[in-house]
């Protein structure tokens, strides 16, 4: 129950783990690149194979909370060359000039990507990014206690399960879900709409056990929580520790998020960072990442190399019918973003 993940994900600090495997390898080291990524978000061998093919050692740092990553970059902590950031962070990162444009001509393997991911709202034409992995937000549940598959977000409001439900602690998932349930536009910047969403979320608070910054894996595995808003790959991975866990996308619909590789502004090791991106874009490397952490890849060429049990899992690669209920998160203007922040804050203090 007490996994290393629990510590890393605690959000208390960013653990800087030198990549021991790479350090042990005998090949001559020709360079270094600093990569800042979500915890549990890379293949078991990715960095090692990069070192073998390029001679570049990756100094790998982890974060358990994206706001933490953003604050680190923002306060000017130097040295990161490459980061992973989720779609909704991109406008902020661009507005504060924390990431640099992506020179696509220096990446040979861009062609491997699925055209669906070539021009996201958050970064038209991928000017600043390369898509890394994607997934969905949905409901994680424990089949032992929840006999009927939860098919609606309203299940997370079920009073009879008071104290057994947890919710993601971010405005994007929380408010988008409430707007969806109320049939209101999910990119709304109308204070009345957001006020209704807030009321709905406040109604839910008494049944919640807690809010968590990432999927509530530990509490789900330990069965402290039976129903949780969470991210697909996390739940499927957690099911390895508790076979009762399952994941579903509610009928009201839900969201696809995409994580992107971005070049940190002012980084001195640009060539090394681009080589690492190109390495990750290779079909076999991308497939190895998916096989390790069970999240979906936008890398089309990698699909045939993914383990059939994962490639065929419609919780990870949703079928066409589910895809219809899924959409990308809305891009918010600076003003709307400030309003969403305030409203979410009011939910939390309420």
């Amino acid at each position: 129950m007490l996994t290393r993940r629990a510590f890393v994900k605690s959000g208390l600090s960013v653990l800087v783990l030198p990549n021991l495997l790479a350090a042990c390898s005998k090949k001559e080291e020709t360079g270094v690149v600093n990569f800042f990524n979500w915890s549990q978000y890379i293949g078991k061998r990715t960095l090692e194979t990069f070192k073998q093919s390029s001679g570049i050692r990756v100094q790998y740092s982890l974060y358990g909370d994206e706001d933490e990553m953003f604050s680190k970059l923002r306060t000017g902590i130097q040295g990161y060359d490459l980061i992973v950031a989720t779609d909704y962070m991109l406008p902020k990162l661009k507005a504060l000039n924390l990431i640099d444009p992506m020179p696509h001509d220096r990446l040979q393997n861009m062609g491997n990507l699925d055209p669906t991911f070539q021009s996201p709202d958050f970064d038209p034409n991928l000017d600043h990014t390369v898509p890394y992995l994607w997934g969905t937000t949905g409901i994680a549940y424990n089949r032992r206690y929840i006999k009927k598959t939860p098919d609606s977000w309203w299940n997370l409001w079920d009073k009879s399960l008071s104290g057994k439900i947890s919710m993601l602690d971010n405005r994007r998932d929380g408010l988008s879900c409430a707007l969806l349930m109320l049939n209101l536009p999910i990119d709304s910047s109308d204070p009345r709409h957001l006020n209704r969403a807030k009321e709905l979320l406040l109604e839910q608070k008494p049944v919640l056990k807690h809010y968590t910054s990432t999927t509530d894996e530990n509490a789900l595995v330990s069965q402290d929580v039976w129903l949780a808003m969470g991210w697909n790959g996390d739940v499927v991975r957690a099911a390895a520790d508790n076979a009762n866990l399952d994941f579903t996308v509610p009928k009201e619909g839900s969201f696809i998020w995409t994580d992107f590789l971005c070049l940190v502004h002012g980084s001195k090791r640009r060539t090394e960072a681009l080589l690492l991106i190109d390495h990750i874009l290779k079909a076999d490397v991308a497939a190895e990442i998916v096989n390790s952490i069970i999240f979906a890849t936008p890398n089309l060429k990698a699909r045939p190399l993914i383990a059939p049990s994962i490639a065929g899992d419609d919780r990870i690669f949703p079928d066409a019918l589910t895809m219809k209920r899924l959409r990308f998160y809305a891009l918010l203007s600076g003003e709307a973003e400030a309003l969403w922040n305030r409203v979410w804050q009011e939910v939390k203090i309420g």
């Binding site: 706001d67 971010n170 922040n341 939390k348």
Partner: peptide, 11 residues
């Protein structure tokens, strides 16, 4: 928590 959230989450 309120203060921490202003610096980390709400920016």
């Amino acid at each position: 928590n309120l203060i921490q959230n202003q610096f980390l989450t709400a920016q």
